[in-house]
Design a protein around this nucleic acid. Structure first.
Lengths: 168, 168
DNA sequence: CGCTACTTTCACATATTTGTGAAGTTAAGA
DNA sequence: TCTTAACTTCACAAATATGTGAAAGTAGCG
């Protein structure tokens, strides 16, 4: 079972693809994402099929299987890619859905929740009648507000998207 | 001009304060922020005055002036603290506003903008008629949508906040 | 104009992160 | 059941990031 046996993807200018991958990954890194997960994610995003095997990723990004494995584990935890076992092969494919960003955003919400609970503790332990307590209470209220807004926003997005791109 | 000459803040249980500071900072770190900026920000948030000098920060966090300087520079760039020169002293105070989070969010918007332009390049260079191009175009549309929503959301927050906390 | 209180910059030692090769594990197919 | 392709784990070397002390810069105040 050779690599070349899978022309899953008619090749475009690999130069251009690579340039996009590295550029986009750099932006993600700057926003706080680790380098390798960022590169893997960008590579998937730029692939026509939206799904690549470990070997394909390794080849495109010039990294070892170990590096791919680590990156993919991270991305899967963050719900940014899903894994699929190809039936009848021991290969695994890693896929981005175009709506994967919702999952990623949802995950950000988990971060917000943790901030909120830390703030709640802070308000309690510093006292809600102190200036610091009041500031933290307001901050907390802000996050709670944002939580709710995000849910509503995603609903509006689904509608907007259907109008613009049609139902999937 | 001694340190002790400024009882800006009636002291609460320093134990509890420190526990909050380290806990909240840890959450911020986990979300991608560097350790020292996170600790400084948490310390400011938990102070009654909402503003501390470099020396006070150094003392509370047990770090050198150099570390405070670096952290504060970063936070100011991110618009998460503002600097104020105390008139009649060469001390500087670093302040959090309770609405500082808006600024921070606004800054996140700058990140989104950069993602958008990277995606736009990707769509162009990979071709908008390819599957990958279409996926990226949809992703781009999502971010553009989010941009607009955030602006609207912040307006709603201002209203909500005024109802709940009164005008500042 | 100094003097000196405060802040910033810089070189460096230390800690942390990152990616690799190689060994280990799993499961498809004979 | 055995073989072996494919993925994962692990110990380690290299690259990065982090915080410090010390030196250099700034700006109030006499």
């Amino acid at each position: 079972m050779r690599e070349a046996a899978e022309p899953t993807e008619r090749e475009r200018d690999p130069e251009a693809v690579s340039k996009f991958v590295e550029g986009f990954a750099a932006q993600l890194v700057e926003a706080g994402m680790q380098r390798m997960p960022a590169r893997v994610f960008a590579a998937l995003l730029s692939s026509d099929s939206g799904a690549l095997t470990s070997a394909e990723l390794g080849a495109r990004l010039q990294v070892s299987p170990a590096a791919v494995s680590g990156a993919v584990r991270y991305l899967a935890q963050q719900h940014m890619v899903s894994r699929e076992r190809e039936p009848g092969s021991r290969r695994e494919r890693y896929r981005v859905h175009s709506d994967q960003w919702y999952e990623a955003l949802t995950n950000r919400e988990a971060v917000l929740k943790r901030w909120e609970s830390a703030l709640r503790e802070g308000v309690t332990s510093l006292g809600e009648d102190t200036p610091a307590g009041r500031r933290m209470a307001e901050t907390l209220a802000f996050f709670e507000f944002v939580d709710g807004e995000i849910v509503a926003m995603m609903e509006r997005w689904r509608v907007h998207r259907e109008e613009r791109f049609g139902r999937r």
